[in-house]
Each structure stands twice: as structure tokens, then as C-alpha cells.
């Protein structure tokens, strides 16, 4: 076997190896995407735990999983219906945008409170914040992984 045949053989095998190197890099990219999807999918974005609810709807202690957009109020068309005399029909809306939760009062009669402070407009929330609508008090929690 002369030098040329050997070199050509090496180049040939290099080409096949490079083909598989490309494929390995592809697999790595796919694997990473899959990992991030698995890490984020299935896990709910957050939940509301009912702290106090004098009129019993929702019952105290209940845990409510949240969608990216959750509307709250007394009207049955809300994502979370609160049967409380001091809650407006369309009271507030909780939204998950990007990485954080935001709360917006929808012009309720008795207002929306975050950690005891009355809020207006859109306010960012953190996990652990306590929200109050009428007499109902809820806590925003991260869903344990």
C-alpha cells in the first residue's frame, strides 16, 4: 500500500467521521432542547393556596393550579370563581409573562390587595405573596418540582 492510497483512505474515513461528528452535534442540540422541554413541561406555572375564605367558596386550604392567564371573580365565567359577597363579578386577572406573574385589578368595587397593600394597575408578583380579593385571601406558590 503506497502513501497515496493510505492518505486517500484516511481522508475517506475522515469524511465519514465528520459526517457522524455533525450528527453527534445535532443530537446534542436535540438533547438539550428535550431536556429544557421536559424541565418546563408538565410542571404547572404556579398555584394559589386558599388561606382564608369565610363563605367557603373556594374552601380554605384548597390548592388551585394556574394557567398562564387566570381570571378571578364572582362570575362563573372566570377561571377561578369566588362566591364571596365582597368580590366583584370580574375582579382581577393573573398573568404569567415571560418569567414572572403579574396581577391586574379589573376595576373591582372593593379593590385588590397584595400583602395588605391595595394595588392599582398591573403589579408584578413574587412566589409567596398573599393576595386578597374581598374576604378571600390566597397565597401564590411555586409548584414543587
Amino acid at each position: 500500500m503506497d502513501a497515496f492510497t493510505l492518505t486517500l483512505w484516511i481522508v475517506r474515513i475522515t469524511f465519514v467521521i465528520l459526517l457522524y461528528l455533525f450528527f453527534a452535534a445535532l443530537l446534542r442540540a436535540l438533547w438539550r432542547d428535550l431536556r429544557t422541554t421536559v424541565a418546563t413541561a408538565g410542571r404547572s406555572l404556579g398555584r394559589l393556596v386558599v388561606v382564608t375564605s369565610p363563605e367557603g367558596r373556594p374552601p380554605a386550604g384548597a390548592s388551585i393550579p394556574l394557567d398562564a392567564i387566570t381570571s378571578l371573580g364572582r362570575d362563573v365565567n372566570n377561571s377561578i370563581t369566588m362566591e364571596d359577597s365582597f368580590v366583584s363579578a370580574e375582579h382581577a386577572v393573573l398573568t404569567f409573562r415571560g418569567r414572572a406573574w403579574y396581577l391586574e385589578d379589573r376595576g373591582s368595587t372593593n379593590g385588590t390587595y397584595v400583602n395588605g397593600q391595595r394595588v392599582a394597575g398591573v403589579v408584578p408578583l413574587g412566589y409567596g405573596d398573599e393576595l386578597q380579593f374581598g374576604q378571600v385571601r390566597l397565597r401564590l406558590e411555586r409548584v414543587p418540582a
Binding site: 469524511f15 465528520l18 452535534a25
Partner: peptide, 25 residues
């Protein structure tokens, strides 16, 4: 990264093909 790898592979394949056809590197 993937495009660089694909380009390098194309170059290797091209050299392999040209050498085979020319009978020398």
C-alpha cells in the same frame, strides 16, 4: 457550530473525491 461542522465535512469529502478522480492528492 453545526454549519462549521457541515462545511468542514464538505471540504473533506471534496478532497476525497478530487484525489480519487485525479489519482493523486
Amino acid at each position: 457550530l453545526l454549519l462549521v461542522l457541515a462545511s468542514v465535512a464538505l471540504c473533506a469529502g471534496w478532497v476525497s473525491l478530487a484525489s480519487q478522480q485525479a489519482g493523486q492528492m
